[in-house]
């Protein structure tokens, strides 16, 4: 029941988000059809605006937009005129999602063990080294990490391809560059989670009852310690799956990330609003899934 209600809330929420974005992009100065090379007559620009209904009052444009949205139609792109927004998302989203999942896997695969070890060896040299590394991972942005990776692995050592999205080898550097920040974040969250859990009463009680340390850690403590990581995973996945402007630009990956920035700069109204709606939907759904995971992991959590 609770989850159905949450899903039902989604619709008004998305309506509000689309309305606000729609209004904001239209209010911004400059239009999608302004060019250095102006058309020979004002009539030409008028033809363009008429074709995309930009000559109508804004409320009418919005109603038209929402009407199309109800049919799953995000409208035509104003910048990429041979494509609809849906068409571009259909091409670019799978690429970003694949890279996003790879980076997610990398972040979990590196972050969880590092967090686990630094927590168990708290205060020892493993903890110090691990903490410094995770701090660096969190602090150095992809904008810096990616070119360094390119420089070292492709120019200097010639081990991996420079850029493009062709073979599995092409995926390695972007995965690392994109996932590194999240790996650091997860390691830190998981370390905290483990430390907090290990101090809880039920852990002491279990120890007193003679439960083996391995079984205690892996079967009981981890389940609770991982909760901060789980709640962080929702927004993180939404971020990862919609692509990164910087990483896609540096590695020439045909994903969705670039469109988030460029559609706004280009005043590609339909694209900007469409992406906002898409991102919001992903965020809401993933947060819902996070709540489900919570319920499964932590027996104390019940949703009414």
């Amino acid at each position: 029941m609770y989850f159905l209600r949450r899903l039902a809330y989604m619709i008004p929420l998305l309506l509000i988000i689309s309305a606000v974005t729609f209004l904001l992009v239209h209010l911004a100065p400059g239009g999608p059809f302004d060019k250095e090379h102006a058309p020979a007559s004002p009539q030409i620009k008028h033809n363009l605006e008429a074709k995309y209904h930009l000559d109508e009052p804004i409320w009418k444009q919005y109603l038209r937009y929402v009407g199309n949205l109800a049919h799953g139609d995000f409208g035509p792109s104003l910048k990429y005129r041979d494509h609809s927004v849906t068409d571009i998302v259909r091409q670019a989203l799978p690429v970003s999602m694949l890279l996003g999942w790879l980076a997610f896997g990398f972040a979990m695969g590196v972050g969880l063990p590092v967090g686990f070890i630094t927590a168990l060896r708290r205060g020892r040299w493993q903890d110090h080294i691990g903490s410094i590394l995770t701090l660096l991972a969190v602090c150095i942005p992809g904008l810096v990490v990616a070119p360094i990776l390119v420089l070292v692995f492709t120019i200097k050592w010639r081990l991996l391809p420079v850029a493009l999205w062709e073979s599995p080898f092409h995926g390695i550097l972007p995965t690392v560059a994109l996932g590194l920040y999240f790996a650091g974040k997860i390691a830190r969250l998981f370390r905290e989670g483990m430390l907090n859990t290990m101090q809880m009463e039920f852990v002491t009680a279990a120890r007193a009852k003679g439960l083996g340390e391995n079984s205690l850690l892996l079967r009981h403590a981890v389940r609770l310690a991982v909760l901060p990581v789980v709640s962080y995973s929702g927004p993180m996945l939404a971020d990862l799956m919609t692509g990164s402007f910087v990483i896609e630009m540096i590695f020439q990956i045909p994903g969705l990330g670039g469109f988030f920035i460029n559609s706004a700069l280009n005043h590609d109204y339909t694209m900007t609003v469409g992406l906002a709606v898409l991102y919001a939907t992903l965020l809401i759904v993933l947060n819902l899934l996070v709540d489900v995971a919570y319920m499964m992991l932590d027996p104390r959590v019940k949703y009414e």
């Binding site: 060019k35 090379h37 058309p39 007559s41 009539q43 030409i44 033809n47 363009l48 008429a50």
Partner: peptide
């Protein structure tokens, strides 16, 4: 007009082209 070509103006040297575009 329905094509909404930015560069249609290059053809305005053709007779009645501009009127048709408008």
């Amino acid at each position: 007009p329905a094509t909404a070509s930015d560069y249609a103006g290059q053809l305005f040297c053709v007779k009645n082209a501009q009127a048709f575009n408008a």
